[in-house]
């Protein structure tokens, strides 16, 4: 059973789906928080993911060139996170804040404009070419391979995938603590549920908004760095092409439900990879050319059947 079915399924379809799902999930957290607290779909979110990965690359390259140190991407991501959060807050202050009381469409347009500006900025500074993040091929971890093989369930997983999955779980746990145990987290949930009520009960909405950008920025950079670790390279449209599946994940999980977004991300990631599994016969179930459509189809079905998402998110 394992040899004929499970080995291929788990190693080549399930685990890759899980890894992509983790990246979608982290990106979707930021989107769902912005959507519920600031009430608009932030099109620039993918670009912050991307610029975070570029900052990380720069930190790694600087460390290598000036000190001869090769540092792990996750370590180099720390200054990148600070910069990306700074960027988010700067953009919010000068480009989104003027539209707080205006119709949503204007701030959506503004975020679309920022998407163009940030991406073109990166393209003019770092150049449009691909950058190598980590060269070479990530072979499956030998220890895990031989350990699991002794139970007859050989798992092939390179180290980078352990980092991505473990990192996502840790961020989730931290986020869970932040949202349920801290004052600021409770404030965020309150504003998300009802901004008017939160305001009346003495919560400073602007502070909450800044906190939202920080959490969103942190998760976005983490997603960007994980994506770059998985792809082992950087390029300037990597954020944008993740954006729509991340929206899909946020909607699937229910707007304003960060944990829903995580589940949504995992579902979308798995569905994309599993859609090309040869469920019947030898050919893929769906032509891989249609793979991108899977996320959208799930999203549309969800919107139509249950617009509040799997976890009863907010409806506007």
């Amino acid at each position: 059973m394992w040899q004929t079915f499970g080995f291929e399924f788990v190693n080549f379809y399930f685990i890759p789906g899980l890894v992509v799902g983790c990246i979608y999930a982290l990106g979707a957290i930021g989107i769902t928080l912005t959507f519920s607290i600031l009430r608009f779909a932030n099109f620039a979110h993918g670009e912050v993911m991307m610029i975070g990965a570029y900052f990380t690359w720069t930190a790694m390259t600087l460390a290598k060139n000036s000190f001869g140190l090769s540092i792990h991407p996750l370590f180099a991501a720390i200054p990148a996170i600070a910069l990306a959060i700074g960027l988010f807050i700067f953009v919010d202050r000068y480009f989104y804040k003027p539209f707080r009381s205006a119709p949503t469409i204007r701030v959506v347009m503004a975020s679309f404009g920022m998407m163009l500006v940030i991406r073109s900025f990166v393209q003019s500074v770092w150049g449009p070419n691909q950058l190598t993040f980590v060269p070479g091929i990530a072979r499956p971890n030998e220890t895990v391979k031989s350990f699991t093989n002794s139970f007859d369930i050989m798992i092939l997983m390179p180290n980078k995938h352990f980092w991505i999955i473990a990192g996502t779980i840790m961020i989730m746990m931290a986020l869970s603590w932040l949202l349920t145990k801290t004052k600021i987290g409770k404030g965020m949930r309150a504003v998300s549920d009802s901004p008017e009520l939160a305001k009346v009960s003495g919560i400073d909405v602007e502070v909450i908004i800044q906190a939202t950008w920080m959490v969103g920025g942190f998760c976005a950079v983490a997603a960007g760095v994980f994506l770059a670790m998985d792809l082992q390279m950087l390029e300037t449209t990597m954020g944008f092409r993740m954006l729509l599946p991340m929206f899909a994940a946020a909607i699937l999980g229910g707007i304003g439900r960060p944990f829903g977004a995580v589940i949504g991300g995992l579902v979308i990631g798995l569905a994309e990879e599993l859609s090309v599994y040869p469920w019947f016969g030898n050919g893929p179930l769906l032509s891989p050319g249609y793979k991108t459509g899977v996320a959208f189809a799930i999203m549309i079905v969800m919107l139509v059947l249950r617009p509040s998402g799997l976890f009863k998110g907010r409806l506007f």
Partner: peptide, 23 residues
Amino acid sequence: TSNQAHEPNKASYRAEVATLGAS
């Protein structure tokens, strides 16, 4: 043995590769 289009610019092609690699 198999002739499949893939969508450019995806984050992972492991599933496509596995399906094609079987043939």
